[in-house]
Nucleic acid binder design. Structure first.
Ligand SMILES: [Mn+2]
Ligand SMILES: [Mn+2]
Ligand SMILES: [Zn+2]
Ligand SMILES: [Zn+2]
Lengths: 125, 125
DNA sequence: TATATAATTGTAATGGTTACATCTTGGTAA
DNA sequence: TTACCAAGATGTAACCATTACAATTATATA
């Protein structure tokens, strides 16, 4: 039950939520939910390739139900994580001869459109 | 004194060492060295753009004195982190209109040449 | 119902990182 | 030299996301 709700929530959002975000979001709906369950479920989802684990130079991991190849932009001011398209397949690389690439990760950082024109945004890394 | 040695070591290696690696490596040379100093020094080096902080889907941060634009390949078996060249400037992206990109990070994962032919390599993530 | 297995929970430990107060070093002026 | 100050370095404790582990609850099957 819990894991279905977790997958549903993850599939229906583009927020790239953390464990804490998922937990506090679903707690009203599942009052018996424990954080351990969230961790365990996300581990299973990642193993089953139904979700993707993201490390965005933060102390918390983020999760993404969008498993397709795409890049992530993290705004240093508001902390939001945005998706963007990038053609990683046609990216030219040198020095990877003999390497078996299994996973590609593209992470950009900077200021999102809203924070660029908003001086009040607090810097969050 | 400590911070000079730390920068020298970082500049002279391509290992992308962790704090623990830097600390244990320099301890024989600087018996009074503390891990706090390593952390603080690396923070300063990153701020001064003399080093780069890398989060490679591990629990430990890694550091790189090579500040130029390049990609990183992490072997899932032996854990080693390799450099490779990638032309990120000419990478085509869609969905970043209005975004101010300040930093680009490219991380690949898989098996390095040595581990591909060596079945004995232990899986480390 | 009885039994086994899967799912969930609670608590404690782990470990990298940060905060903070203290101590040491190096330079500068009187 | 001596006094003084600021930068550098150290040690300890707290912080906090994550993991380990044992216990409990729900679900399925015979
Ligand atoms: Mn995404
Ligand atoms: Mn590098
Ligand atoms: Zn923003
Ligand atoms: Zn390897």
């Amino acid at each position: 039950m819990a894991r279905i709700k977790i997958l549903e929530y993850l599939t229906g959002t583009t927020d790239h939520p953390t464990v804490e975000m998922i937990y506090s979001r679903l707690l009203p709906e599942i009052p018996t939910l424990s954080k351990t369950t969230v961790y365990k479920t996300l581990e299973l989802l990642v193993e089953a390739n139904l979700a993707r684990l993201l490390h965005m130079d933060e102390n918390e991991a983020r999760f993404d139900a969008n498993v397709s190849d795409h890049g992530h932009f993290r705004c240093s001011r508001c902390g939001k994580v945005y998706d963007f398209e990038a053609d990683l397949d046609s990216l030219e690389t040198k020095g990877l001869e003999g390497f078996a690439v299994a996973e590609k990760n593209l992470i950009f950082k900077g200021s999102c459109p809203r924070c660029r024109t908003d001086r009040s945004g607090r810097i969050r890394g």
